[in-house]
């Protein structure tokens, strides 16, 4: 029987609770989409890391996390693939693996939880890793960059680093399912009432828009399954955001970004025009921290965020 863990009850992370806040080197798992169709996310993250004064060491030989989809084929493969990634981090002396995708976060944490909570599964993974001389000792913690911003940098510190405040830009948070659910896998904050993105938006000088769609699904994983279902899910959520006054959306997940940025035009016939530009989390943070906007790949978005940024006197 599953149990819902309270946010502070991070049983499988607890061996890490005494970590030093001074640590500035992190293992970095960019994920497939940041290396393929959302390269602007990868680039913005590296520029942001510079501004934050942290070193993100990319795990270049890491594989895909399984993206929730390989679970449909085999119950073990995603866990063992991720164990291989953690073994690589450990071999580099890194005990933190930072992600920039909600789906990577959720599935890598799920794999780690299964490994740490079951000796049988850890042994299974290590017997396979042993075939190529690797071993995972269970010393890695997977976190999203969003959590790093709050836990390691700190909101007050972040606020003090802002050089381009967002001038009250009304930004709707869009979490992406896998960074919050299932709650007993993620558990970093309440899945029903998260506020980490809101806290970051406000630290940057923006105004966070509250709407029911913020914890709902973008439909990315079924965009190829049946026509228009994902587009309707996008339309439904963006309609809510727009009706609550949003001028833009921020998401910690590139899959959500692709869906929200890509499908609003297609959902307009049923949900009306919403045209909300969708920032990747590191893009907007990096912008507020002073990274030149032309370096952030804002021109790669289908719904150009520069229009609203001009309206708000954020760029000229």
């Amino acid at each position: 029987m599953s149990t819902t863990l309270l946010p502070e009850d991070r049983a499988f992370d607890s061996h890490k609770s005494t970590r030093s806040r001074e640590m500035k080197r992190y293992g970095f798992f960019p994920g497939c989409v940041a290396k393929e169709s959302c390269k602007e996310l990868f680039n913005s993250t590296m520029l942001l890391a510079d501004k934050l004064g942290i070193e993100l060491i990319e795990l270049t030989a890491a594989s895909c996390c399984g993206a929730s989809v390989v679970n449909d084929v085999n119950r073990d493969v995603a866990r063992v693939l991720n164990a291989r990634t953690y073994a690589q981090a450990e071999a580099l002396g890194l005990d933190d693996v930072i992600t920039i995708c909600s789906t990577c976060t959720g599935h890598m944490r799920a794999a780690n939880k299964e490994l740490l909570e079951s000796e049988e599964r850890m042994n299974q993974a290590n017997s396979i890793l042993g075939k190529f001389g690797a071993k995972y000792n269970g010393g890695v913690m997977v976190r999203h960059l969003l959590w790093l911003l709050i836990d390691d940098i700190g909101l007050d510190n972040l606020r003090s680093m802002v050089v381009r405040p967002l001038n009250g830009l009304k930004v709707a948070p869009f979490y992406g399912c896998h960074i919050i659910r299932p709650e007993n896998v993620n558990g970093w904050e309440s899945a029903r009432n998260p506020h980490s993105l809101e806290d970051v938006i406000e630290a940057l000088g923006g105004e966070a828009v509250d709407y029911a769609g913020k914890t709902r699904c973008c439909g990315f994983h079924i965009q190829l399954e049946k026509d228009n279902v994902a587009a309707n899910m996008v339309g439904q959520n963006m309609r809510m955001a727009k009706d609550h006054g949003a001028e833009a959306v921020i998401t910690p997940c590139p899959l959500c970004h692709l869906a929200l940025d890509g499908y609003q035009q297609d959902s307009a016939s049923r949900w009306g025009r919403t045209d909300l530009p969708t920032f990747h989390l590191p893009q907007l943070v990096a912008f507020a921290l002073g990274v030149a906007p032309e370096k952030l790949g804002l021109n790669k978005h289908l719904i150009d965020p520069r229009t609203v940024m001009v309206q708000r006197d954020l760029i000229s």
């Binding site: 896998h178 659910r181 299932p182 699904c217 399954e225 049946k226």
Partner: peptide, 13 residues
């Protein structure tokens, strides 16, 4: 009946 239309969102968790 669209088994494969599940969006992996875990809302039903």
């Amino acid at each position: 009946d669209y088994l494969w239309l599940c969006a992996h969102c875990y809302a039903c968790s």
